[in-house]
Write a protein that binds this DNA or RNA. Structure first.
Lengths: 109, 109
DNA sequence: ACCGTATACCTAGATAATCAAGGTCTCGGG
DNA sequence: CCCGAGACCTTGATTATCTAGGTATACGGT
């Protein structure tokens, strides 16, 4: 529907970290959570989701473990690490500073 | 200094359009304006700036004309077109919707 | 007269994130 | 028994930004 989402660049990782701050979840569920909480404004494509998860895992901000969902399907459960928690704080602050800066330019001053 | 600015992705064009909405300016001055208004939070590298200007020109949202600055240096003056004005309105609304969506995920709900 | 700094423009190549579009497998319902 | 949805994965294309170079001119200081 919408043209490809450039704005998402760089914020996806933060969205994932924040989602996991509520508790462990598997990949697919993370995407659904983000969609739900944002009232479907944010749609995370699987082609972005899984690479992002590997990225975060590689950096040590999340870790993964195979498990079972309630419906007994095999799922990869992701969990926020301590480093991930710290990173989330930094990234959230960055996001906040960035949006405030952009708003200074964009809003009728 | 700071790690490369991923968050800027997609917003740079909008920042430029908005800057030109205040009146014509040349490229270098656009970057300085954005830095000043954002209290130096936003630093636009020239390697991003000029390609962005060509992009916007190609899309018909701005147009350019060679002229002279007050200091008599040759400068390329950019001006917002009508299409650019319309685009600015759309992009600003998109930005607003996007940040609200992200905030729904990021802020303690 | 000279030199450094800031102004002002430009470009090639590297990096990196997202998306589109394919694929596999399993569970549950009709 | 089949089909849709859940759940995971990957390859390739696109695209934006940055790094790091380059040119040229004006101006201030010495």
């Amino acid at each position: 529907m919408a043209e490809s989402n450039e704005l998402l660049h760089g914020t996806l990782d933060t969205l994932i970290l924040k989602t996991l701050a509520w508790g462990p979840r598997h990949g697919y569920a993370i995407a659904r959570w983000i969609a739900t909480v944002s009232d479907d404004a944010l749609q995370i494509e699987e082609g972005s989701l899984y690479p992002a998860l590997y990225r975060l895992e590689r950096k040590g901000w999340i870790d993964a473990e195979w498990g079972l969902s309630e419906s007994k399907r095999r799922v990869k459960l992701y969990r926020l690490t301590e480093d991930g928690e710290a990173r989330l704080a930094v990234a959230t602050a960055q996001w906040s500073r960035f949006t405030q800066a952009v708003d200074k330019v964009l809003l009728p001053g």
